[in-house]
Design a binder for these strands. Structure first.
Lengths: 235, 235
DNA sequence: TGCAAAAAGTGAGTTTTATCAATTTTTAAA
DNA sequence: TTTAAAAATTGATAAAACTCACTTTTTGCA
């Protein structure tokens, strides 16, 4: 059985991939006219909170964390964006500075589309505009879920929940029964779950002892998603 | 000095009032053609999470909490919407069910605009579409802030922060130096701050003892916003 | 206006989470 | 492969937050 039958994964995923796929050719060409592509190494910053947006980014391949730093420098991950998703459109559409920072969490291939091209395409294309409205509205639901999770769930429940979500994001050429390796540093995991690294490690140890998962070095392999769903205590 | 000089209140406010104000007359008329107006008493539910959206709502006067219930029935307030703001558009634009519930937290006058009228106006009006994109993108920034607050701030800091924000929302015919009465139940405050009622009461007592605020029955009057900003420990 | 119900407030004990100080393991570069 | 640096892990203690049981105050309605 797919995860969708047992867990509402949609409610934890932005789905911004669907914004650009199968856009009418005219719109797509206009948008991509001046795109430039670049490799970002693990840890490299794509844009910084508070700076002025110069365009949007498309993840051809890789994973990117969207995060905020508080004044003590503590990082909070808002969302992990995957291959096919776009970044940086919020700031341009809101006519504000970037509300968060973005950095690659693994080596990633990312295209840059200049602000003017994005806005011009948006002006021309009702489909793009409609899709952005749809995606942004869906994002509202996702963030409302995350917010509620942070406000109401324990560290153990939050980690269980995020592992379920991460497992989906780390699927590549997945076949049922195949193991999925979640390859994320404990620090990133901690800042995704909103706790200290030590607590993540302790709960992971607990999950290992109950047979929910296994670790190989930093990699996490989930053996029992159902138990994880139980641990998350999520409707 | 206005609050804007000392605290970034914009980052905590959706600003959805700006969506409908001064819309071109044609668009506005089309949108309002079949609107119906209704009074909601304190506590009355406007829509429920998980149900299908039949239209959008406009708050002519009053205040509305947007919230989610977990499976134990514990409530988490996502946002407090004020006079002039609109509600319920996320679900329609995302083509999903309502991601949260909405209920009046004081007697409110609210207009209902049918889904079809909203969508037709959106189709006709590039301005409406642009404004929604702008508002939704701004909301992303607000929710990212809230999420980070829940993940990183203590109960005391969160309560201080929310009191600063609530004080702005409860301003009516405000003149500098005038007292602002925040009239919200301790239960609602607790579910806004993401803690138990008892903790809200304890921190409020502490704030009273340090002269930050005063209470009159359930009403809270903030005397020293600057100290509150200090307590919130917010950049 | 009085009164019952609801809401607010208090205290004590327990659980959860954070913090600090280490040690061990893993990673990646030479 | 070796090895130094980075990352992960463990343990102990302190601080924060939660829960339960209860008392007091406020509210809104008869």
């Amino acid at each position: 059985m797919s995860i969708k039958g047992i867990f509402p994964i949609d409610k934890w995923d932005f789905k911004s991939e669907s914004v650009l796929t199968d856009l009418p050719l005219d719109d797509f060409d206009l948008l991509m006219a001046n795109k430039t592509e670049q490799v970002y190494k693990k840890g490299e910053i794509i844009f910084r909170e508070g700076s002025y947006p110069s365009g949007i980014f498309f993840i051809s391949d890789g994973k990117v964390k969207k995060y905020k730093l508080d004044k003590e420098g503590r990082e909070q991950i808002i969302y992990v964006a995957n291959t096919g998703e776009i970044l940086g459109y919020h700031a341009i559409l809101a006519e504000e500075r970037y509300p968060d920072s973005a950095a690659a969490i693994e080596e990633s291939m990312i295209s840059f589309i200049p602000r003017e091209d994005f806005l011009e395409t948006l002006h021309q294309s009702e489909i793009l505009s409609r899709r952005l409205l749809k995606t942004l509205s869906h994002e509202f639901a996702v963030l409302a879920n995350s917010l509620t999770m942070f406000a109401q769930k324990s560290v153990r429940e939050r980690l269980a929940l995020q592992l379920i979500v991460l497992r989906e994001k780390y699927k590549v050429n997945f076949q049922p029964g195949m193991p999925v390796e979640i390859n994320m540093s404990r620090d990133d995991l901690a800042s995704l779950v909103g706790t200290a690294r030590e607590n993540v490690v302790r709960v992971l140890t607990e999950f290992k002892e109950t047979g929910i998962l296994e670790t190989k070095g930093r990699k996490i392999i989930v053996h029992d998603v159902n138990k994880l769903i139980d641990m998350a205590n999520y409707k």
